[in-house]
Structures are given as structure tokens and as C-alpha cells.
């Protein structure tokens, strides 16, 4: 306990201040570019954490929502002529509605089947992206996207503030959920669904809530991401993104908010700083994933928490109960 908890407030305030000032102290425009990825990936990873780390549902559908959000926003701007902000909101709304429908059906199944259906869902989205050419333009994709430039900063400064204007409130919302009774209830359901039901908790309603919120946020993150890339094509549904989100959640710690936020930021920045080739980086990710799952299943945050548990265990060797009046 103690030191880390007391420092959280000042650390977070300093972190947010540093993030807002980043374009003015970043060593290069490329660093700002990396920071945009970090902001969006962290939201997607934390959304996955809400679904998997909290609600206990390993959902590959997150990748599908990342792609749906990207396509809906692109089509909204290019074909429907929407302004950019309404297009992003539409992306979130479509993802939420689709998630409500898919979740309503898939959450009736057991955990194994849910995983399989979530994979099937994402494969379907990929198929649509590639093959529904009238709408998605197939493999060519929809080019010519771009984020607004309200401040006229050196690129990609403005894009960075757009990403931050979404990511900070989104993470704030996720923090509120994680810290609330709803977050606690999700953790309870993940740990013991039967016990939760015996306590009057309806698991499906809570899980559906987590699934829908995560879908909407992931969809908007995906939308901003492709506008930052300036093109959306079926590569937005590359399994690489899902793997990255998963590794951030596992290393940061399932069910931990700050763990995953820190992992999301570090894992976006570190590989760039270390100048690894893409293949070497992925090999390292794969190794870390296997090692973490095998030896540190609840990630770094889980490991910290386990150590706190040890403190309790040692402080109270075989606690004796007060003798009864029998």
C-alpha cells in the first residue's frame, strides 16, 4: 500500500500536463506521430481490458469494431457528406448498436463459444471490408481522409490534439466505470459467475454493458486512427492490431486500469525508441505474451497486488477468531 497510491494523483496530473504540452517538447514530429498511436491504442487496449480483464470475455470482436468504426466514419465523411465530428459519433453509435445485437445473442453462449463467435464476427467484418466493394471499395480502400487542423501547428500537431481530445475523456470514462461499483461487479462476475448470481447479480446485463461501451470507444478510436493514416482499407482489420491490444492488456494486467494505461503508452513508444525492426519487435511481443501468460497471468499490476496480498498473509498468521459463547 501507500507510496504508489498516494503518488497516483500527482503522477496523473503531471502525466496529463506533459501529454498536453507534448508537441512543444517532443524531439521530432515523428515522436508526436508515435504519441498519436499511443493515445488511440491505449483507449482500444483499455476497452479490451474492460471486456476481458473486467468482464472476463476474451473478445476478438474488438478488432471488428475497430474496423467498423473506421469504415463508418470514412463512409460518413466521403459518401454521406457528414462533418467529421458527427461522423466519429456515428461510428461510435453504429458500433454500440451492432455490439448490442451481437452481444445479446453471443452472451447466451458459454465462454468458449463466445470466443469463437467473436472471431467469426471479426472475420465477417473483414469479409465485408474486402468484398462489399460497392460500399467499402474493397482492397483499394477509401483514401483522402484527414483530421481537421484547427491550430495550424506543424503536422502532426493538430492530429495529436484531436486524438488527445478523444482519448483523455474516453480514458476518464473507462476509469469511472472501472472504479465504480459497476467495475467491481464485472470483476466479481469474472471471478465467480455462480457466486455473483447467488448475490442477485445478472451477469449478462453487466457484460453487455461492458461489451457495448468497449465497442463504441474502440470504434471511435479506430475512426480517428484511419483519418490520421489518411486511408482506410481492409488492413485496418489486420490481426496485428488485436495482438497489440491483447499484449498491452496482458502485460499491463487484466482488470487493472493504470497497469494497462502504462503498458499501452510504453508499448507504443518503446519499440520506436529501441529502433527494432518490425519483425524483431513482434517476436519480442510474442515472447512477452507467452511469458506473461505463463508466469504472470495478471500482468505487472496483478503481480504488485499479489505482493500486497502477501503482506496481509504475513501480518496475520492464522488469525484466531474470538471464542464463541457456545
Amino acid at each position: 500500500m501507500g507510496a504508489l497510491d498516494r503518488l497516483t494523483g500527482p503522477l496523473v496530473a503531471a502525466g496529463i500536463a506533459a501529454a498536453i504540452a507534448l508537441p512543444f517538447w517532443a524531439p521530432s514530429p515523428y515522436a508526436v506521430y508515435v504519441a498519436i498511436n499511443a493515445a488511440l491504442f491505449t483507449v482500444a487496449a483499455m476497452s479490451l481490458n474492460l471486456v476481458y480483464g473486467f468482464a472476463g470475455l476474451l473478445s476478438f470482436a474488438q478488432l471488428g469494431f475497430w474496423g467498423i468504426g473506421a469504415y463508418v466514419a470514412a463512409i460518413g465523411v466521403k459518401d454521406l457528406g457528414l462533418p467529421i465530428i458527427p461522423a466519429f459519433l456515428l461510428a461510435g453509435a453504429v458500433c454500440a448498436v451492432v455490439a448490442a445485437g451481437v452481444g445479446h445473442a453471443a452472451l447466451r453462449l458459454n465462454r468458449h463459444s463466445f470466443v469463437v463467435v467473436s472471431i467469426a464476427f471479426t472475420l465477417l467484418v473483414l469479409t465485408l471490408a474486402r468484398d462489399w466493394t460497392e460500399v467499402t471499395r474493397g482492397a483499394l480502400g477509401i483514401p483522402g481522409l484527414g483530421l481537421p487542423r484547427p491550430f495550424g501547428l506543424t503536422p502532426p500537431g493538430d492530429s495529436y490534439y484531436v486524438a488527445l481530445a478523444f482519448s483523455l475523456p474516453a480514458l476518464g470514462l473507462l476509469l469511472v466505470i472501472a472504479r465504480s461499483r459497476v467495475g467491481r461487479t464485472l470483476l466479481a462476475i469474472r471471478q465467480d459467475e455462480s457466486l455473483a448470481r447467488s448475490h442477485g447479480i445478472a451477469p449478462r446485463a453487466y457484460r453487455l454493458f461492458a461489451f457495448v461501451v468497449a465497442a463504441a470507444l474502440t470504434g471511435i478510436a479506430g475512426a480517428i486512427f484511419v483519418f490520421h493514416l489518411t486511408i482506410v482499407d481492409p488492413l485496418i482489420l489486420d490481426i496485428y492490431y488485436m495482438q497489440t491490444f491483447l499484449i498491452m492488456v496482458i502485460l499491463g494486467g487484466m482488470g487493472s486500469f493504470w497497469g494497462v494505461v502504462v503498458a499501452g503508452i510504453l508499448m507504443s513508444i518503446l519499440p520506436e525508441a529501441l529502433r527494432f525492426s518490425n519483425d524483431l519487435r513482434m517476436i519480442l511481443y510474442g515472447l512477452l505474451l507467452i511469458l506473461a501468460v505463463t508466469f504472470m497471468p495478471y500482468g505487472f499490476a496483478g503481480w504488485l497486488k499479489a505482493r500486497r496480498g502477501e503482506v496481509w498473509r504475513r501480518a496475520t498468521p492464522a488469525t484466531r477468531l474470538p471464542a464463541g459463547d457456545a
Binding site: L58, D279, M282
Partner: peptide, 22 residues
């Protein structure tokens, strides 16, 4: 460990694919 098995095989897949590509 159903979910864990998926994570482990995902990690293995990443390593093999990028190892060969490397």
C-alpha cells in the same frame, strides 16, 4: 485455461510468423 491457451497460441503464432519473416 481456455482463454489462456488462446493467448499462448497467439504468442506462438506471432513468434513463428515473424521469425520466419525475419
Amino acid at each position: 485455461d481456455f482463454e489462456r491457451s488462446i493467448l499462448v497460441t497467439t504468442g506462438l503464432s506471432i513468434i513463428l510468423l515473424h521469425g520466419v519473416q525475419w
